[in-house]
């Protein structure tokens, strides 16, 4: 299931959807938050106060649904959930939740990892970071491309 929304979400409440299905033996959850600094480490602290996520309504849902379908093709999933926010988010706020459920943990871990890696390079979202020094569009990272590429099938 895919949801793209401006409002916050409650991770505990989202996990409730995985109860009641006796075939599920393991659930893996990834939660993405807004960092309060720019760069690779706190050593380069630059006080990001907030960010704004823009997206492409319609294509976002289409791409997320395609990514979820690909995960379901590759792993025996009982259920999957992607919730992604857009709009202005303050430092520390939740951005994205990816959760997968399967009979055994390995499929849940791997598919969750796959979903967040592919989402980051395929779902049409763009971030602007708001800092004391002004607003900056976040640039795509080669490292994210590399992380996504390891899931490409040769």
């Amino acid at each position: 299931m895919i949801r793209v929304q401006r409002e916050d979400f409650d991770p505990a409440a989202e996990l409730a959807r995985f109860s009641g299905n006796g075939a599920i033996g393991g659930v893996c959850l990834f939660l993405g938050l807004v960092r309060d600094y720019v760069g690779e480490a706190n050593a380069r602290r630059q006080d990001v106060t907030a960010m704004t996520l823009e997206h492409y309504p319609g294509m976002t849902e289409k791409q997320l649904a395609a990514i979820e379908a690909e995960a379901r093709r590759r792993w025996p999933l009982e259920d999957a959930l992607i919730v992604h926010r857009h709009g202005r988010l303050e430092a520390g706020e939740r951005i994205v939740l990816v959760a997968t459920a399967s009979a055994h943990r390995e499929a849940a871990f791997q598919s969750c990892h796959f979903l967040i890696d592919w989402l980051k390079t395929k779902a049409p979202f763009w971030k602007v970071e708001h800092t004391a020094h002004g607003d900056t569009w976040v640039e795509a990272r080669d490292s994210d491309d590399a992380l996504a590429a390891r899931w490409e099938k040769g």
């Binding site: 993405g32 996520l53 997206h55 492409y56 294509m59 992604h84 951005i95 994205v96 967040i116 989402l119 980051k120 390079t121 395929k122 779902a123 049409p124 979202f125 763009w126 971030k127 569009w137 976040v138 640039e139 795509a140």
Partner: peptide, 9 residues
């Protein structure tokens, strides 16, 4: 649509 490389997640 034209846009920069995406930066979601």
């Amino acid at each position: 649509a034209f846009f920069p490389p995406v930066t979601g997640g």
